[in-house]
């Protein structure tokens, strides 16, 4: 076994993990914050102590922060503004005669 030769990171180089919590069964996991940990298993243990002290969750995901690809904030307008004019995508755009009632 090469265990004793395994190269370990200095604690100051522990990678950053993003933490996601499912608040209850049936709901989505939601981002709650981030923390440094030696590995993913350690990150789960720390996330439990830091983010679920008051039963905030029933399940935890941790994801290495560097695995996340984000959209470019500078492209916010060109990415998202065009949808503002497409209000026909929403059901409230359409008039339904009163006689029809709920549809």
């Amino acid at each position: 076994m090469s265990d004793s030769n395994a190269k370990s990171l200095a604690p100051t180089d522990w990678p950053l993990f993003e933490v996601f919590i499912r608040s209850k069964q049936g709901l989505d996991h939601k981002h709650v914050g981030s923390l440094h940990a030696s590995d993913a298993e350690h990150a789960i243990a720390l996330a439990r102590d830091v983010y679920t002290r008051r039963q905030e969750g029933v399940s935890i995901w941790v994801v290495p922060s560097k695995a996340i690809t984000a959209s470019d904030p500078a492209l916010k307008n060109e990415n998202f503004d065009p949808m503002a004019s497409k209000i026909y995508r929403h059901p409230t755009f359409y008039d339904i005669p009163e006689e029809i009632g709920h549809m």
Partner: peptide, 21 residues
């Protein structure tokens, strides 16, 4: 508390090495 952090690092490195093996 330094030894605890060092131990966590060593534990993570050991498990990573075992996974590779």
């Amino acid at each position: 508390g330094r030894w605890v952090r060092d131990a966590a690092s060593a534990h993570a490195a050991k498990h990573a090495a075992r996974a590779v093996a």
